[in-house]
Design a protein around this nucleic acid. Structure first.
Length: 906
RNA sequence: GCCGGAAUGGCGGAACUGGUAGACGCGCCGGACUCAAAAUCCGGUUCCAGCAAUGGAGUGAGGGUUCGAUUCCCCCUUCCGGCACCA
């Protein structure tokens, strides 16, 4: 039997009893559109009193339709935007399209559709999807990087950088498909073969434009310390990527064709110089090329090294191989002859493309020496630990004291490096040097769908920059790539031009820019997307830098580093005043789903979408298997992985929105895990989120009468609730409810500020549980307590629901917005402030402490909240649980953690 | 291979600065409602022993610091992200 404490409320006659997200969301989105709710305006230096908050999500590549990663990213951004708006900020949340790139060309090859059309169609569809998710995006600032009014500024800044020497031309290595006669991207090279032709890929050197990011190495590294709002791990990754290392540049003299030359190497372990037993150069090193001319076997080896992909990950995992060149260099100190080898593990792109081989103290050199029978000469003693040339031990590479090193014997790492560097300097064969891992940024792409590089090749004048007044160099939008190279090479109307210097017929550059160029400054252009006379204008000063940037962890290095570099260039050119583009950074985790497959006959694997798979569970609910719904037969599982086309484990957000509505999609995304962690997809979890919103709706319907009555009484106000002085004593149930509401609010306020949105969602669930529990109560309780005043309960309910709707609003704005106005709360929820915690509501007369004996939980005790430490200690040692568990042993120590626990040590 | 992360019930996750491990949700079990089912509502649910009170174990493995460790330190394993032309 149940009775309602405060009487039965009649159902609301106006409000729909059933939650209908499709209708609610459509209506509210139309209203937001009409009123320009998300439009951001510059205010003169905060003249309206509000500080600005620029909240930016990484813009999407328009691949066709949104994927769950987008939904997650943009929901996080929208929650932060709406929350900051509630906290009184002038918020900008823009959106645009990273519209150049390889997939458009691949789609063109598959469907014979020009990349431009494919891209614009995708943008239109995805924009519709974003709108249906209810993000508070200022669409008036939308931009697409494939439009000339955007990329003309890529070209313009490129020319400025060229003038300043920050852009230069040199040769670079690319993947060359000898059959299609075309350059391939790394992802188009599979196991060293072209994806379409299957031909073995060759490395080929071609001329390319580079941006001199290395000129900023020191700044990019040092400025990481000025970014407290960035995750530590991202800063560490960037620092390691920039890779500043202190070492010594060492010259090994040799004679070649009668001329005296020097082989230069860089090492951080100059202390091991006397242990050098050989030198190794990269296959691309000039010395290797020289030796290969007269050595057919070596030439074949160098050739072999040139096959396969250019990816560093591939190179690093190859078997270490090498071959002697037959050339010798002289040890700069001992005068010993050292053979020069070609090693496939030596990178031409780091240092000088050559290394000194110290097998005794470098693991790679050790393996190399064992394989080819080269001498191993230990010269460092590490705390007397034994050395054996039979097997590598990790301590061989540690710092120690020089031995077997002649005059350097007995010196530690620092002193030996100093001494050796000084000796080399005296002989003009080396010195201390700082080397960076960071390489200059090659931006040339031998592809069509990108920003044309604004250069004209003239037979007389050479490479001539396109004059500013001829910008933009417009990319024709009707080309259809066919896989055999850049179609621009066949476009006479694009190629033909006059040399700006001499006026003679000339040829336009057909390489386009890396798409990382586009994404390196789009966040600046959002401030002034309609500015046709300049790259930036005064509005940039108001909005930038970005206050909060949100995007996938996979961009931790490249995109973020290039953006930081580009910002520094613009700063040096006087275009912007800030030096770092993103004050705070949130790197969201990836969205994962289960992978199911079956193996057909000859090793072919078919992947099945998890939506088509049913689980088999045992009686405890534990999963014991999975079957394909279509045939009921088992499928194998391959764990979980990022949603991808190749594993067929993607979930289409569109279906989700259509079935449950945007709010459910958003709620699940936020509830399933905190933003920085990976998120595992779960249909059941989506159901749970939907169920919660339905319960919320039903509760609002049920509580409509008292809440709207209270709204009418207080004219919708959500502050200034007043309770009698004896509230807690006279109405303990109401006081307890109110205490819980404010305790949960306190936690939610803390969590939303630290971006832990999953517990904000769970706070909303707790609030609903508490409030709906208060509508009904058991007979017993109703009979034992005095009849509560309906007015007081009504006020607590009104306050609690007002808090719940505002806590949940950033996550599920549509349903909250609808209920807010249905229940008569004042104004538009869009402009409502985040609720304040009433500390008075949290006060308690008695608190419960946990009682531990030797750190083990043994009981609880209730003490007045004002109890002193001494009082608690005295009370604790007399507790029954303590006496029982101490078994007569004397109490050694009592530790009191105020408000939490007492630990009795015996 | 190198650099950076992560690991907690049947599952996703919570536990803020070292202080009650498992909030909230899912799943499962039991009950109510129903002719029945779905939906909804109520109760239970880390594991082991026990009717229970209670006791023991427990945060990927192994060590350490501490009155007390999911949290700090060392070492190992597995998984994930990046490695410069996917974006």
């Amino acid at each position: 039997m149940r009775a309602v404490i405060i009487g039965t409320f009649p159902d609301c006659p106006r409000m729909e009893p059933v939650y209908n997200p499709q209708v609610i969301e459509r209506d509210i989105q139309a209203q937001w559109d009409r009123t320009g709710a998300a439009r951001a305006r510059e205010t003169q230096d905060g003249a309206d009193g509000r500080p600005k908050f620029y909240c930016l999500c990484m813009f999407p590549y328009p691949s066709g339709k949104l994927h769950m990663g987008h939904v997650r990213n943009y929901t996080i951004g929208d929650v932060m935007s709406r929350f900051h708006r509630m906290r009184g900020f002038n918020v900008l949340q823009p959106m645009g399209w990273d519209a150049f790139g390889l997939p458009a060309e691949n789609a063109a090859m598959a469907n014979k559709v020009p990349p431009a059309k494919w891209t614009y169609d995708n943008i239109a569809y995805m924009k519709k999807q974003l709108k249906s998710l209810g993000f508070a995006i200022d669409w008036e600032r939308e931009l697409a990087t494939c439009k000339p009014d955007y990329y003309r500024w890529n070209q313009w800044l490129f020319l400025r950088m060229l003038e300043k020497g920050l852009v230069y031309r040199k040769s670079g290595v690319v993947n060359w498909d000898p059959i299609d006669q075309t350059v391939l991207a790394n992802e188009q090279v599979i196991d060293g073969r072209g994806w379409r032709t299957g031909a073995i890929i060759e490395k080929r050197e071609i001329p390319m434009y580079y941006m001199r990011i290395t000129a900023f190495s020191e700044e990019l590294l040092a400025a990481l310390d000025t970014l407290p709002g960035w995750p530590e791990r991202v800063k560490t990754m960037q620092a390691n990527w920039i890779g500043k290392s202190h070492g010594v540049n060492i010259g090994f003299p040799y004679e070649l064709d009668g001329a005296n030359k020097v082989l230069r190497v860089f090492t951080t372990r100059a202390d091991t110089l006397m242990g050098v037993t050989f030198c190794a150069v990269a296959p691309e090193h000039p010395l290797a090329a020289h030796a290969a001319r007269t050595d057919a076997k070596l030439a074949a080896f160098v050739d072999e090294c040139k096959r396969g992909s250019v990816m560093e990950a591939d190179l690093a995992q190859m078997d270490k191989k090498g071959m002697p060149t037959g050339l010798y260099v002289t040890h700069p100190v001992s005068g010993e002859k050292l053979e020069v080898w070609v090693g496939n593990y030596v990178l031409m792109t780091y240092g000088e493309g050559a290394v000194m081989g110290v097998p005794a103290h470098d693991e790679r050199d050790f393996a190399f020496a064992l394989k080819y029978g080269l001498p191993i000469k230990p010269v460092i003693d590490v705390a007397g630990k034994p050395y054996s040339t039979q097997a590598w031990q990790d301590w061989y590479a540690e710092h120690g004291v020089c031995v077997n090193s002649g005059k350097y014997d007995g010196l530690d790492f620092e002193r030996s490096v100093d001494a050796i560097a000084a000796d080399l300097k005296a002989k003009d064969l080396g010195d201390k040097q700082v080397t960076w891992r960071l390489r200059d940024w090659g931006i040339s792409r031998q592809r069509y769908w990108g920003t044309p590089i604004p250069i004209i090749h003239c037979e007389t004048c050479g490479d001539v920059p396109v004059p500013d007044e001829q910008l933009p160099v417009v990319l024709p939008e009707d080309c259809v790539p066919d896989g055999s190279g850049n179609p621009l090479n066949k476009r006479q109307d694009f190629l033909a031009c006059a040399c700006p210097k001499c006026g003679k017929p000339a040829r336009r550059e057909t390489d386009t820019m890396d798409t990382f160029v586009d994404s390196s400054w789009y966040y600046i252009r959002y401030a002034c997307p309609d500015q046709s006379a300049a790259m930036v204008d005064a509005r940039v000063k108001y909005w930038l830098p970005v206050d909060q940037y949100i995007g996938g962890i996979e961009h931790a290095i490249l995109h973020l580093l290039y953006s930081r570099f580009w910002t520094k260039v613009m700063n040096k050119l006087g275009l912007v005043e800030f030096e770092e583009p993103f004050a705070k950074l949130l790197t969201q985790g990836m969205v994962l789903n289960e992978i199911f497959y079956r193996k057909a006959g000859e090793g072919r694997i078919t992947y099945y979408n998890p939506a088509d798979v049913d689980f088999v569970t045992d009686e405890s609910g534990k999963r014991s298997g999975a079957v394909l719904r279509a045939d009921g037969l088992p499928v194998a599982t391959d764990g979980i992985g990022t949603m991808s086309k190749s594993k067929n484990n993607g979930v289409d957000p569109q279906q989700l929105i259509e079935q449950y509505g945007a709010d459910t999609a958003r709620l699940f995304m936020m509830f399933a895990s905190p933003p920085e962690q990976t998120l595992e997809w779960s249909d059941a979890g989506v159901e749970g989120s939907y169920r919660f919103l339905r319960r919320l709706w039903a509760f609002a319907h049920q509580a409509h009468a008292p809440v709207s009555a209270e709204s009418a009484r207080r004219k919708g106000a959500v502050d200034g609730y007043e309770f009698p002085a004896d509230f807690a004593a006279a109405w303990p149930r109401q006081a307890a409810l109110r205490r819980e509401v404010h305790a949960v609010l306190k936690q939610a306020s803390f969590d939303i500020q630290r971006n832990q949105f999953n517990t904000v969602a769970s706070a909303a669930m707790k609030l609903l549980n508490a409030l709906s529990g208060s509508l009904e109560s058991s007979d017993e309780a109703a009979g034992s307590a005095a009849t509560p005043a309906p007015a007081l309960h009504q006020a607590v309910l009104h306050e609690g629901l007002g808090i719940l709707l505002r806590v949940l609003y950033p996550i599920t704005p549509h349903v909250c917005h609808a209920l807010w106005s249905e229940l008569g709360y004042a104004g538009d929820l869009l402009h409502a402030p985040w609720p304040e915690v009433d500390e008075a509501a949290l006060r308690q007369d008695e608190i419960e402490l946990v009682l531990q004996i030797n750190g083990k939980l043994r009981g609880r005790m209730t003490v007045p909240s004002t109890a002193t430490r001494e009082h608690i200690e005295r009370l604790a040692v007399t507790q029954e649980a303590v006496l029982r568990h101490s078994e007569g042993r004397a109490v050694k120590k009592v530790i009191v953690v105020p408000g939490k626990l007492v630990n009795v040590v015996v």
